[in-house]
Design a protein around this nucleic acid. Structure first.
Lengths: 343, 343
DNA sequence: CTGTTAGCGCGTTCAA
DNA sequence: TTGAACGCGCTAACAG
């Protein structure tokens, strides 16, 4: 049996009204101290717990926020979600997880189901910015549900974003490779329809130009974030008439594949070839040949996104705020790009 | 503006009753086909979306399940949650995440808040089996909320579990080390109050005894799952009068630390010393010196836990089922324990 | 086939 | 200070 104890049960036992019980439990000033204590006491005795669903229906606030990510089993997204959860939990919010697997169909569907579930906010890492999502996003905005993009964003009025400066990150990595004496730097990019990859690439380009290097489109290869794709890319690059001597990969996994392939060809890293990755996945620092990578501070990013949500909720009565937070990436220089003579 | 469209709005527009609208929308047989179509049509036009909170309050089912894990930003738990989400989502359930950070206080608190949020089930990886949680768990069972432990379990009547056979895993690893010619095998264990670690240790012990090895308690060191702890443990072990020539670690991170420390001492792996880990973390296969480890199939484990929940919900009217699913672990033999002459 | 009524559990008017 | 009544949005029982 469900053991459901409601305010009516405790009202009956005390020969008072549910309304009075409600007031007592909610520290309503208009109530006699003695009855308040009595109510609280017997409520505890009867093991009463408020039904959040009823509260939610009444107030229109579910105290749930939806988080939409491509997948949850990666260090990056796992960490962002952790950050979100840790900030929101003390405020009484629960985090509902949705995965999209990069399918825009699922992405839109997820937003809809979250909205129907009456979430108080949606934090998401949008997958493909090319697909038109204005319709569904308008539905969110019209419902006045705070929407926050983190990491993978799209510029939309009324939508706050929390990202890192991917341009700066791309620039820093490339500049570092140049400083190490690399002459022909290739770039393994992700899907350029996403701003994060576009920006990393732009930073790469700018660093080249700023340092008198030639920008060669053939040195850019688009890959998915998989080890195998890194191996493939290297095979392609080495077949060029003028092969590169360094790679800036927008993914740690691709960087790893690249390193594996280079090693199998007997190419020495970092002496003959430097490789840098992106995301600071745990394995990059665990390897014997540790991999230079960019820390995106996913935990911080998640916390920040959650804080922006909280602000948005607090000020929901006032003007609609739209906050753009940009975190500064940190380059971790490791063995895969660190040449002895520069140390 | 909230743009809230309810069945009353569409009833008003059609000059019918909300009840009729409800029936039409729910494929109730007792309704004229024409009005059904009309209702569905105008509902679509008005962009009506059912309010799940109202549904939940009415039905007593929230269509949310709570998942409680120590942390979410590890490959293992991330993968289990992914599995859970992927099985439950098609059934209309949402997954609510809670982290405990191994604090039993938070663990109990999480259960309570999930219960108050009226979740339809709780899937959890329990942290410390020594702490008495009977009271809170009884509350769950009394409310008839399906409770399922995965990975870290505790034997409680009425609670289903999904685990791997940790005894078998410990046995397999140890046997493998013996087969590789290791003579003195140490074991780095986790908190023995958890069944998973106790069982891995028991498997280790049994394999030793079955093969005529001596079981020496001094060869067992309890550690937390951190790289640094592996280094410390090795330092201790090497100081023994009769130091071991192999380590079976119950954690990949600890195994990694052990390997780092051994290497720094100039000890050759696997020729002079073999090290095996546990959990098959991604980095174990990425390393140049790849690490032998045990696959716990976290994705499968999550999926299985979700399926058990679904069964439990389906049969909730009937006898209370209590299902114990035990997955078979898989040993991935890699360089850290593979001696040439045995290949 | 459809309308009326009631209730899920709670907070909040308006009276008293 | 407390009680009575209402409504959040929806479904289900009972009429008609």
């Amino acid at each position: 049996m469900g053991e459901k104890v409601t305010i009516y049960d405790i009202a009956k036992k005390l020969n008072i009204t549910a309304a009075t019980v409600s007031r007592a439990l909610n520290n309503n000033p208009k109530i006699k101290a003695s009855t308040r204590e009595l109510v609280i006491e017997t409520a505890a005795k009867m093991n009463y717990k408020p039904n959040k669903l009823a509260l939610a229906l009444k107030s229109g606030k579910s105290n749930n926020v939806g988080v939409i990510v491509p997948r949850i089993d990666s260090n990056f997204f796992g960490s962002t979600i952790r950050g979100i959860e840790e900030v929101l939990y003390p405020h009484g919010y629960h985090v509902i997880i949705c995965q999209t697997h990069e399918e825009e169909k699922l992405e839109i569907e997820n937003i809809n189901t979250l909205l129907n579930a009456q979430v108080d906010g949606i934090l998401m890492s949008i997958s493909n910015a090319e697909i038109d999502k204005d319709h569904i996003i308008n539905r969110v905005l019209k419902k006045n549900v705070p929407l926050i993009f983190f990491d993978r964003k799209k510029n939309i009025d009324g939508v706050s974003t929390v990202t890192i400066n991917d341009f700066e990150a791309g620039y820093k990595v490339t500049k570092h490779l140049i400083d190490q004496g690399c002459k022909r730097i290739a770039h393994l990019s992700g899907d350029k329809s996403m701003e994060i990859y576009k920006d990393r690439c732009l930073g790469y380009k700018q660093a080249l130009l700023d340092n008198g290097f030639e920008f060669d489109k053939n040195y850019i290869i688009q890959t998915k974030s998989k080890v195998e794709e890194g191996r493939k890319a290297v095979k392609k690059l080495l077949k060029m008439k003028n092969p590169p001597d360094a790679i800036f990969s927008a993914s740690d996994f691709v960087a790893l594949g690249a390193i594996q392939e280079l090693k199998s060809k007997g190419i020495k890293i970092p002496e003959e070839f430097c490789v840098a990755g992106f995301s600071n996945e745990p394995f990059t620092r665990f390897m014997e040949l540790s991999i230079t990578s960019v820390d995106q501070f996913p935990l911080e990013m998640g916390k920040m996104a959650a804080k922006v949500f909280l602000e948005q909720v607090k000020d929901s009565g006032k003007v609609k705020i739209e906050k753009k937070v940009v975190l500064t990436p940190k380059l971790h220089i490791r063995k895969s790009t660190l040449r002895k003579n520069n140390a």
